[in-house]
Simulated assay, not measured.
Amino acid sequence: MILIAIRRHVHYLALLTIGTTALLLLDACQSVSTEPVVSGYDYQPLEKGNFWIYEVTEQQFSLNGSVATQTYQLREILTSSYTDSPNGAPIGTTTFRLERYRRSNDSQAWQPDSVSSIRVTDNQLIKTENNRSYVKLIFPLIDQFQWNGNAFNTSGEDLYQLKNTNKPFTVLSKPFPETATIVQQNDSTLVSQDKRVEIYARGVGLIYKEKVQLQFCSSTPSCVGKAQIDYGIRQYTRLRSYGK
């Protein structure tokens, strides 16, 4: 039996036992290569003062046939943090307060919109909005990996899948060389469409978000399969700037 005990960055002892003969080897200088596995935490930097400004384009479809289109800006900023155990998180978890502000265009002042929180717990990036928690990412980032985004709420299983890890993506003419795409849902039938996608960039965070949830006409045979929208939403969120 061979038993090797190693401690990083310090001297180590190797105890080699063969049969009933033990040989003690001492090496006070040799270093051990223990290159850490890249975690991917930098795909969502969490530090007080970090902010992101997004441009949002949104279409709301109503049953009466009207379509309300609007564009606006969102500003998200990590304003504070605390160490606690929110919603069953392990003791010692650092949770960040994420404040969101909204305005129609550059000429207007930012107005408070909402408050949420974000944390990393057990290698999971968890964001809590309206008292409902979602698992946004799982670390380390493994392409094609699937997980239940609703693991910490009661909405039922919703499988997310990681795709295009470390691939480039361009938003508003700005290239991001390393990104990861999370497909939360991408279903389309004759009567509905549900597409939810988020893209994160290394060293930046969320850079793109797409939400398309539509109900198509199915009341008469003539409209089935024609993608005629009864009601729903199309929403595209694109990163405009970020910093601290």
Score class of each variant (00 low, 15 high):
S39H: 06
E35W: 04
G203E: 11
W147D: 13
A227P: 01
P45W: 06
L63Y: 09
I138C: 04
V10E: 10
V171Y: 01
V212I: 15
T93R: 02
D158F: 04
S104H: 07
V197S: 02
N131V: 08
T34C: 13
S222E: 15
V115E: 10
T121M: 08
P177Q: 11
D158T: 06
Y54G: 02
Q193P: 00
T83M: 10
D106V: 12
R100C: 06
I4Q: 09
F61S: 02
K195N: 02
G203M: 11
V212R: 01
T34V: 11
L13W: 01
A5N: 08
E35Y: 06
Q124P: 04
L137Y: 11
D187S: 09
L16M: 05
P90K: 07
P221L: 10
S192Y: 12
S155A: 13
T83A: 08
V115M: 03
L98N: 02
T71W: 00
L13M: 05
S155T: 10
K163H: 03
I142Y: 03
T94V: 15
Q213I: 14
A28G: 09
L16G: 03
C29D: 12
D230E: 10
A151T: 13
V135K: 01
L159Q: 13
S33F: 13
L26Q: 05
I233Q: 12
S107T: 13
A109T: 09
Y12T: 03
Q146L: 09
V67Y: 01
T170V: 14
F145Q: 15
S107P: 00
T20A: 09
R238W: 02
F51T: 06
L141N: 06
Y101D: 03
R103G: 00
A22I: 11
R234V: 08
L162F: 03
N148C: 11
A14M: 08
R100N: 00
L23V: 13
L137M: 08
Y54R: 07
R102I: 09
N153L: 13
D187K: 10
G40V: 10
L16I: 04
T170F: 12
P45C: 07
G225A: 11
T95A: 03
H9S: 05
Y160H: 15
S218H: 08
Y41T: 13
R8S: 10
V191A: 07
G49D: 09
T121G: 04
I199D: 02
Q59G: 00
T69L: 07
G232W: 01
Y12R: 04
L3T: 14
N150L: 07
T93L: 03
A201F: 01
S81F: 14
G243Q: 10
T95Q: 00
S219Y: 09
M1I: 15
